[in-house]
Design a protein around this nucleic acid. Structure first.
Ligand SMILES: [Zn+2]
Ligand SMILES: [Zn+2]
Ligand SMILES: [Zn+2]
Ligand SMILES: [Zn+2]
Lengths: 167, 167
DNA sequence: AAAGGTATGTTATAGTGTATCGTTCGCGTG
DNA sequence: CACGCGAACGATACACTATAACATACCTTT
């Protein structure tokens, strides 16, 4: 299930998040290098802000954080950077939250499936081929040609679930 | 796959849509009767507007249409009616479109899966137990407790697909 | 009739996302 | 180097989506 990197779907509380972020930046650099894209300062800063946690962050929260770094910034600046990052599979948009989250395995043309904790706010990305296959199979029966899929499940992450059982 | 009522997932172009609408209203009436809820004039009018087609409609388009019927109407009026209809499973919200669409099999506590044509705008609702099972199975492996699922797939409906092949 | 809850009206404002235009930057070409 | 071109960015204004807060009307029960 999920990625084949052996990592848990939900990073535990004490994990080395600096490493998460560093790996994400490296991945973005690799993509831009291979596709001849430009990871400008602005885009890199936005990506770093998004990776400041595993919780999806809204465009205007990004804007605020960005303004602290480079002075007054207007919405289009943020949205353009987001468009770039999302269109190249470096960041995902969470439709149910109007928010953005970093991709663990960046690359073109993948939609992922997201588990979003309604308690603590963290989001985890799956990329389960069996789930995707089940969805596509069901859809094809309807004569529908899928292009883009949005799968977002809200609920309780393992930690918050554990906590709720304790009470 | 889908509902067990034998109807096609996508209603064809020449179908009797007045019947779709009438059945939806009847369903809503039945729900309200059984749960002691009030399907007021306002709520019924909003439901009828939503059922004017199989295309998801935005809140402000509903507002405009509603204003034509009962004079100036403010956003909260529409959103409150929508909250009622959505919370009782009579209408679904399409997250990827910020729009609302009528439910074919209204009732509490179901999320459905939606196929949305990016060409003509129609949306069809599935309720495929196999797909849901596959999603839940994959999710449980991550130690996640699902509460609400949002599955929306955009692409081409059978008619638009046929048309695009012809060109 | 009085009371209390539900539904609606009304105004204002919050939150999210784009259109448009002008300027700057990076880079290849003559 | 000067030029030209497209991509990226800055800045202003605006469009679209949704809710807060408070007042009023309605409906049901006592
Ligand atoms: Zn981390
Ligand atoms: Zn949590
Ligand atoms: Zn119909
Ligand atoms: Zn279509």
């Amino acid at each position: 299930m999920g990625f084949d990197d052996g990592e848990p779907v939900f990073a535990d509380k004490g994990h080395d998040h600096a490493q998460c972020k560093a790996r994400a930046i490296s991945g973005a650099e690799a993509i831009c290098l291979s596709l001849d894209l430009r990871l400008t300062d602005l885009r890199r800063q936005v990506l770093e802000i998004i990776w400041s946690s595993h919780k999806p962050i809204g465009a205007y929260d990004i804007l605020e954080s960005l303004s602290a770094q480079r002075g007054r910034v207007a919405p289009p600046t943020v949205y353009r950077a987001l468009d770039f990052l999302v269109s190249h599979g470096i960041v995902h948009r969470i439709e149910t939250l109007n928010a953005f989250v970093g991709c663990r395995e960046p690359g073109p043309d993948h939609d992922g499936q997201f588990l979003i904790c309604s308690d603590c706010g963290v989001a985890a990305e799956l990329n389960d081929p069996q789930m995707m296959a089940a969805v596509v199979r069901s859809i094809r029966h309807a004569g529908f040609q899928p292009v883009r899929q949005t799968i977002e499940v809200s609920g309780l992450c393992p930690e918050c679930l554990e906590q709720s059982r304790g009470e």
